[in-house]
Design a protein around this nucleic acid. Sequence first.
DNA 1: TGGGATTATATGGGCGTCAATGGGTATATG
DNA 2: CATATACCCATTGACGCCCATATAATCCCA
Lengths: 153, 153
Amino acid sequence: MDLFVSKYINKIDKKGRVSLPSSFRNVLPKANRNEIILYKSIKTPSIEGCGVARLKEIAKRINNLDFFSEDYDDFSTSIFSEIITTTIDKEGRFLIPEELKLYADIKTEAAFFGQGHYFQIWEPKKGLNNTEDSRRRLLKEKKSLRMMLTQQK
Amino acid sequence: MDLFVSKYINKIDKKGRVSLPSSFRNVLPKANRNEIILYKSIKTPSIEGCGVARLKEIAKRINNLDFFSEDYDDFSTSIFSEIITTTIDKEGRFLIPEELKLYADIKTEAAFFGQGHYFQIWEPKKGLNNTEDSRRRLLKEKKSLRMMLTQQK
DNA sequence: TGGGATTATATGGGCGTCAATGGGTATATG
DNA sequence: CATATACCCATTGACGCCCATATAATCCCA
């Protein structure tokens, strides 16, 4: 499977290391399986992460925004200047930069949420609450989650 | 037959393994016959499952949403982080994740219900009751529908 | 067509491997 | 030299892979 799916809660040890879930590691391209990209989520107090390839996709999407809009600057500043690359050790662990940990209020545990082509890292309780809220919003708006899941092409 | 049909009740062994019914296994594409995706049913206390091919469909559909919209985030959170992939061993068995077992109140036995393009996994008694209820609702509807159609003033 | 043989399915259990985690030590970098 | 981080090794528990058995289904041939 070449998508980030499911959720995992892993511990952060004394040295600040945390395991990237095995299934997430397998999504990373074999060439660059020892590094990931991290940045602050724009909309939520969480960290987003992905492999290098995803970065180009984001760049493209931002590029499609109106160049003179305020959004353009805001997005490109918020994203590109904040991106941090991190290396993954042989056991599959990495260090979450202090700044990002503060931003997401992460201390002793990190919750990893698959988001398809990328993933999010949350303080566990906040992450679970966020999932709840998302689902509630979708159901309330009667957006057809079911269709999304079961619809035939 | 490339549809999930009929119902089966299988045992969960000490290790938590349960056989995916043979006829269900045959519905899975030969390429990815060793893994399925599972997620909580939206409307019922049951688990829904299908092959991984569908997941890629979903990913594509979500990716077509406006990248910066709230829906994009809600869908990708509600779907990707809630989906669990699980591998099927050579004997055709798989593990039902603890969280899903709790959600569906499944302990020692799992009832599989074909639903066409996907299937449901129930705690046996609840599953059978659900079938009853469905049938009753359907008959009631039919009856009132017929009345409506044939009733003469 | 009957009966034995072969195959498939559901189920049980042993054991090696891997993932997550912990910690010691070398190395780097300011 | 002090702190941070990469590398190495160890531990534990979960899971995958393999082999075994029972029962059912199918087949095949006399």
